[in-house]
Amino acid sequence: TETREFDNEEEARKEAERLRRKGQDVQIRKKGNRWELRRT
């Protein structure tokens, strides 16, 4: 599992969408005042 953190939700969602188009399974969750993007 690979995780990346983003400062805002929009960036996290854009990156998640990009990875999903490549066929990756991605989850986003709020972590304090940041957003965590998890690739499984």
Rank of each mutant, 00 (worst) to 15 (best):
T1D: 12
T1P: 13
T1I: 13
E2W: 14
T3W: 15
T3Q: 08
R4Y: 14
R4Q: 13
E5R: 07
E5W: 15
F6Q: 01
F6D: 01
D7L: 07
D7V: 06
D7Q: 06
D7K: 06
D7Y: 07
N8G: 04
N8Y: 05
N8T: 14
N8S: 14
N8P: 00
E9K: 06
E9Q: 05
E9I: 13
E9G: 02
E9D: 02
E9M: 07
E10S: 07
E10G: 07
E11W: 03
E11L: 06
E11I: 03
E11Q: 08
E11V: 05
E11G: 04
E11A: 08
A12M: 03
A12G: 02
R13K: 12
R13V: 12
R13L: 14
R13G: 04
R13S: 08
K14G: 07
E15Q: 04
E15G: 03
E15F: 07
E15R: 02
E15K: 02
A16S: 04
A16G: 06
A16R: 04
A16F: 11
A16D: 01
A16Q: 08
E17W: 04
E17S: 08
R18E: 09
R18W: 05
R18S: 08
R18Y: 08
R18Q: 09
L19M: 12
L19W: 07
L19T: 02
L19D: 02
L19V: 04
R20H: 07
R20S: 07
R20A: 08
R20Y: 05
R20D: 02
R20M: 08
R21P: 01
R21W: 06
R21G: 12
R21K: 12
K22D: 13
K22W: 08
K22P: 03
K22V: 11
K22S: 13
K22L: 15
G23F: 03
G23Y: 03
G23L: 02
G23A: 02
Q24G: 06
Q24K: 06
Q24Y: 15
Q24A: 10
D25V: 13
D25I: 13
D25W: 10
D25E: 12
D25R: 11
V26E: 00
V26K: 01
V26T: 05
Q27E: 14
I28H: 01
I28K: 01
I28G: 01
I28S: 01
R29L: 13
R29D: 06
R29T: 13
R29E: 10
K30R: 09
K30D: 00
K30F: 04
K31G: 02
K31R: 10
K31W: 00
G32C: 03
G32R: 00
G32Y: 00
G32H: 01
G32I: 00
N33F: 03
N33R: 02
N33A: 04
N33G: 09
R34I: 10
R34M: 11
R34W: 08
R34L: 06
W35E: 06
W35A: 02
W35T: 02
W35F: 04
E36P: 03
E36R: 00
E36A: 00
L37G: 07
R38V: 15
R38Q: 14
R38D: 14
R39P: 15
R39Q: 15
R39E: 15
T40I: 14
T40W: 08
T40P: 07
T40R: 10
T40G: 10
